[in-house]
Design a protein around this nucleic acid. Structure first.
Lengths: 206, 206
DNA sequence: TAGATTGTTAATCGATTAACAATC
DNA sequence: TAGATTGTTAATCGATTAACAATC
């Protein structure tokens, strides 16, 4: 029986995975518990057990969860037992920073195509990746069947870029442009806007 | 009577504000409606009306919301009728990109102090701001009563940096380090981790 | 065996939505 | 007046938590 799992549960799995990897790196134990994990993440142990129980029984009464095993399971669930090749659009300062970020590879992603509209950038390289003209976006994405893209363009062109990415077959977009993007259902969009995040916190400051 | 307003409501206000600013920039109308705003943001009109009603009655039956007025009100609520000076820790490629980002000023923030631990960077400038040694962090934050900070350091030192920021008086932290930070209650922490965001989406991809 | 911890149930808590009287 | 849209209520829907039998 296929049960629809809430988005909010899916959203926590990468957080669990990230903390489990830290436990692996610390390397001093083979198992952990929902209590320990919750303690480290500020999440209740009941919620962690409930979340995981949507996908199977990964723990053992009395001993908890085998860290390596749970990491493997979460990677399978999140489809991270592969490296997702990523297209990046926009090589301004943020795009360049993302292209150089070495935290992608180890966690399942690799920026392998980079696009910009600026003729003085096209043909150059960023972190070993050739910068292509945005004109080539559709052909490249279709040819390589790329599913994941990052938008790091100015806000003014982000919706247009998103439309073209979607038309070319992209299924998941992470956008750094500070505006809501419209995309057809079946295409997943997530956002990162530092100002929005800061504004959420200033409410609570005198 | 003071009612506790849910965090999730507060979290949507900056989104409303951002879209209202877009309507201002488009400049072709003085008013909007919860229906229009919801349409543009993929949020139900009922939710928008409910959210706003926590803070007052900002609309008029039949005509909707006066855009400029609602922007003003939201800015007041979010304490954005001032510019918040921000301290940035870490001047790697991401920190540098943030220091150069010109989207802060217009929306209520300004990176005015920058810290790094690398002696070859200390004393240089990034976007007109002097790079200080991390040693000077406590004194500078206390002296200027800085409330908001951004962490763009490697994960390995992020918790230590956060502890020092908090001890010096910082009340809101936006962290780009890919790990959960522990902070005392009363200190607000938000996160931006591109990999976590991408991992949330790959679950839905074949 | 005794202690620890799971997976699950039922209860609680909170958020969203539908509907509509009020009124511009 | 007629149409549009608010603010609010009550109903629905969904998420979190507390508690505990099962069992390692």
């Amino acid at each position: 029986m296929v049960t629809q799992i809430p988005d909010i549960v899916i959203g926590r799995l990468p957080i669990y995975l990230r903390e489990l990897r830290r436990l692996q790196d610390e390397g001093d134990r083979l198992t952990t518990s929902s209590h320990e994990l919750g303690e480290r993440l500020g999440i209740s142990s009941a919620q962690i057990r409930k979340d995981l129980s949507h996908f199977g029984e990964f723990g053992k009464q009395g001993t908890g969860y085998h860290i390596n095993y749970l990491v493997d399971q979460l990677c399978q669930i999140l489809h991270l037992d592969q490296t997702w090749p990523v297209a990046l659009v926009g090589v301004g300062s943020l795009g360049t920073a993302l292209a150089h970020y070495d935290g992608f590879k180890l966690r399942g992603f690799e920026i392998r195509w980079v696009f910009d509209i600026d003729p003085t950038k096209i043909g150059a390289e960023v972190n070993g990746v050739h910068i292509q003209a945005v004109d080539e976006l559709e052909a490249t994405i279709a040819q390589h069947e790329i599913a994941v893209a990052i938008i790091a363009t100015p806000a003014s062109v982000a919706q247009d870029v998103a439309d073209r990415l979607v038309a070319a077959g992209i299924k998941a977009i992470l956008s750094y442009a500070p505006l809501h993007l419209t995309a057809p259902s079946g295409v997943h969009v997530s956002y990162s806007d530092p100002v929005t995040e800061l504004q959420r916190m200033t409410y609570y400051l005198g």
